[in-house]
Structure formats: structure tokens, C-alpha cells
Design a protein around this nucleic acid. Structure first.
Lengths: 194, 194
DNA sequence: TATAATATATATCAACTTGATATAGAGGCG
DNA sequence: CGCCTCTATATCAAGTTGATATATATTATA
């Protein structure tokens, strides 16, 4: 991860499509990209300054009406070349961290109910995510052939759909396994799916 | 993430099972935990020092035969309480970053073949991961009822299985979609699944 | 037998990421 | 008029990543 400068290329990718301010870049990232790669102001503003220094973007100051002056950035030809070079690099990695699995791994001494609760909360959270992504998908599907870019956006949504479904399938399987174990140990308990 | 001190609890969780040195902790993490939460020496050694200062672990020095002296750490009663408190905390989050999706998102102007290549490499990599986890699973399945802890370890493996399968299913669907698009644009090209 | 590679073992580094907060003006609401 | 929200730039401490430094002992290669 070190010295890869991913936020820089994320910004170049967005600016390749339209001119934006740091604040607007943050909003684009939150809405479109944060599901698979996030960035905060602390990365955006220094990255913009660095990109400007290297001549990959240029800044123009606008009066925004509200709040402080708006610094709008545009990509340069050098910026487009840098983006193109980065896009064909083969190496890319996944970084995944699952707090629930970490706790589960050490939960051997805990009452089973605690783990059941935890997995249910996980499932509920991702059921919402799955519903949200279903909406994205169905709103994008009709306009898929209108713009070549739509297909690539669609692929990232499709990825989310598969992954959230995997989370849900795992949750159900795990709950089933735990309930079986639980029944074997204390039979009088009435623990049902809600 | 800030001030959560996850590495500390990871270490307590491992020490709750057996006494270990920093080096051995690293190996346990790499083999058992790194699939869903990683930690390096830079986190392990300072964490151990902090845990010792807080009285959650105690150190005893052993002669290792090879290399420098071995500092073996044992969990204390206070450490066990701290671990138990952490284990019942409800909040846990997922942190996922997918470099492939980030590049895909901006790949609208790229030749389709580049994206196809990228997804194939992704699929190949995770086909290996899926195979590896299948081995873990089949070696653990027969001894599931020998130890209560085995079930929890099994659940983390099951999670990996679901997620890798989702990656593979997405890869295949994405490749199909891209090949359909590609054929529509330049028909003479013979690009087949390998 | 020299030497190179590997394994044990502790420790630290620069660069990057996270989550939160500081600062400040404009518009809406009661 | 005060409070909240939105726009907008900017910075912070704490945590994480990936690599490397240091030192010793065993095993493989020449």
C-alpha cells in the first residue's frame, strides 16, 4: 500500500470525467466509490496539492456563494497520461478486515447466544446493503447500453451484490450450525429465527 | 478504528490459549487470523509492551537456542477479564478495499481486453484461495465435535468459502458480460475462455 | 570447509489510512 | 435571534502497511 498513492489516481479518474473541487470529490467518492475504496479529506486535499505541483491537474478559483472560495480542479494532458499508465498496471490487491470474524475466532468460551446475536446483527446490516444495491442495479440496468462507462459501473455493483449475498448465505449457515449445537447442549431453550 | 486497539485483543485472545513470544504470535496470526485481520511486528511488539505495563500479560525470559532471547508472555486474570469485556462489545465493522474495482470503475476508455485480462487474473488468484480453504475445511470437518473452539474456527473458514465463491461467480458473470459487449463491437476477434 | 540460504527472534521506520475535529460563511426554521 | 444544516477547505492523533535493521544458529550448496 505504501507509496502507491491510490488517492491521487482516484482523484485523476474523477477529474477525467468532470472538473471538481475537493469537497465535490469527497461527495463523489462517498456515493460511488467508498463501497470498494475510501478516502477522506486528509487524503484528498494533500493529494490535490501534490497533483497540482506535478502538473497533473490545474486549479481555478471560483466564488461559491456559500462558505469559502471553491477551488475547482481540472485534469491536464499529463494527468490523463498518468491515469492511463496507472490503469494498465497489473498489480492490485484486496484489503479485507472482518471484525466479526476476529471476535468469533476467540468466542469459544462465550455463551452461544452472544455469537448468535452478533451474527444476526451482521446479517441485518448486510440485508440492508443488499437491498440498497438491488436498487442501484435495477435503476442502472435499463440504461446499460446508453453509455460505455455504465457497464463498468454496473460491474462494481454486481460485485457488491455477489459479496453481500455471500455474507447473508454465510450468516444463515452459521446460525443454523450454532442453533444445532445450542439445542444439543441446553434443550429447553426456545431460540427461533426472527 | 482509532483507539480500538484491536491488535491488543488479538494478542490477548491468542495468549488466552497458550503462552507465546512475539515471534510466535506473528506466526499464529499469519496462519490463522491474517485472512480476516492482519497485524505486523510493528503492532505486536508495542502492544505486548503496553499490555505488560497495564498488567494484562506477564513476561518471562527464556533461552531460545537460536537467535536472541525469547520473551514469552502469559495472560493474567486482568487480561482475561479485558478480553471477555472486549468480546461482548457489539460494534464491529468491515474494512474492504478492492483495487480491481477501483481500476474497473475508471476503465471506460480502456480496451476491453485489458479488463478481461485483469478479471481473469483475479479469478485465478481466488480459485487458488478457494482450493486452499476447501482443504482447511475438509481437514477440520471430521474433528468438529472434538473441541468447542473448532466450531468457531470452522465458522471463519466457512466465511472464506462463501466469499471466495462470490468472487469466482462475479468473475464469471463479469467476463460473460464483457465478452458479449466485445463481440458486438469487433466481431472478428476470437477471445475464448481458457 | 567455507559460504550462502533459511529460520529464529526482537525491534523500528517512513508512508499511508482512519475517524474526528477545527474554521468559517450562507441559508432555512421556529 | 439562536440553532441547525450545508458548503468548503484544512489539519490532527492514532492506527496500519510493508519493509528493513540487527543478531544468532542451523541447514543446504559449492
Amino acid at each position: 500500500m505504501a507509496k502507491e498513492n491510490t488517492p491521487r489516481f482516484m482523484i485523476l479518474g474523477l477529474l477525467n470525467h468532470e472538473d471538481l473541487s475537493g469537497y465535490e470529490i469527497k461527495k463523489r467518492i462517498d456515493h460511488l466509490i467508498s463501497h470498494f475504496w475510501n478516502a477522506g479529506y486528509n487524503q484528498i486535499y494533500p493529494s490535490l496539492a501534490g497533483l497540482e505541483m506535478d502538473g497533473l491537474v490545474v486549479k481555478s478559483v471560483e466564488d461559491s456563494g456559500r462558505g469559502p472560495q471553491k477551488h475547482v480542479y481540472s485534469i491536464t494532458d499529463a494527468g490523463r497520461r498518468a491515469l492511463a499508465d496507472w490503469l494498465v498496471l497489473p498489480e492490485e490487491k484486496e484489503y479485507t478486515k472482518y471484525g466479526i470474524l476476529l471476535k468469533l475466532f476467540f468466542s469459544g468460551d462465550l455463551p452461544v447466544e452472544k455469537t448468535v446475536e452478533r451474527i444476526r446483527a451482521f446479517r441485518d446490516r448486510h440485508q440492508e446493503n443488499a437491498a440498497r444495491i438491488r436498487q442501484y442495479k435495477s435503476s442502472l440496468e435499463p440504461v446499460l447500453d446508453q453509455d460505455a462507462d455504465h457497464l463498468y459501473y454496473f460491474l462494481t455493483i454486481l460485485f457488491g451484490e455477489h459479496v453481500y449475498h455471500a455474507y447473508l448465505a454465510w450468516s444463515d449457515e452459521a446460525l443454523m450450525l450454532l442453533e444445532t449445537t445450542n439445542e444439543g447442549q441446553n434443550e429447553g431453550q426456545e431460540e427461533r429465527k426472527n
